[in-house]
Computed example of a mutant assay.
Amino acid sequence: MAIFPPTKRVWWNEPVEKSEVLWIFIALIWALVMFFMMPYWHINGSQNLSNEAYRIRPEVFAKRTEEMAAKYKVGEEGDTGVPVVRPPAGSDVYMLGRLWEWWPVLELEKGQSYRLHLSSMDWMHGFSLQPENINLEIHPGYDMVLTVTPTSSGEFSVVCNEFCGIGHHTMVGKIHVVDK
């Protein structure tokens, strides 16, 4: 019960002020503009990734990732022993997240397209590609697929931006983009 109940109990039958009608109309028009702009921004704005997601058992994804790493390994990253993998352009590239690493290190060619497959082996992890500001949630049991075409060369960091446990702050990976 309200402290001071309205004097007229049926308030919705009261006339609406003209200024309120104007603001409701403006809000409705703005909502419609934003609604119809969403497909435009997605297609022409280049800020939203078009990705796919498929169910997959973590052990199957791990096997595919390990096979790709063994087939296209070109070296190891520092003293960590993490393989550096250089798959051919246009191929399927796999990167998995697990406590507390992104594995393996990828070496991609600038200007070439790849189908990047991402999945988690244990918990939900965040895939944040810096400094490009690409952010995805990576769930165990799902193969997140996106087509990437690197436009600049350099070293890019993959950071987990979803808290995943005590070693979360150390969960980083790398993607090297090289010129042809």
Rank of each mutant, 00 (worst) to 15 (best):
M1W: 03
A2F: 10
A2R: 08
A2C: 06
I3R: 08
T7M: 05
W12E: 14
V16A: 01
V16T: 12
W23G: 10
I26S: 02
L28N: 06
V33I: 15
M37H: 03
I43L: 14
G45H: 09
G45P: 06
S46G: 07
L49Y: 09
S50G: 10
Y54F: 13
R57L: 12
E59A: 13
A62K: 14
T65W: 02
E67W: 02
K71E: 06
G75K: 00
E76I: 00
T80Y: 13
G81W: 13
V84M: 00
R86W: 01
D92T: 03
V93K: 07
V93I: 04
M95F: 02
W103I: 04
P104E: 01
V105G: 02
E109P: 01
E109L: 08
K110G: 01
G111W: 14
Q112P: 04
S119A: 14
S120G: 10
L129M: 15
Q130D: 09
P131V: 09
I134Y: 03
P140Q: 07
P140E: 06
Y142V: 15
T147S: 11
P150V: 08
T151F: 03
G154C: 04
V158F: 07
C160E: 03
N161A: 05
C164R: 13
I166F: 08
G167H: 09
G167P: 02
H168Q: 10
H169E: 11
M171F: 03
V172A: 05
G173A: 08
V177W: 08
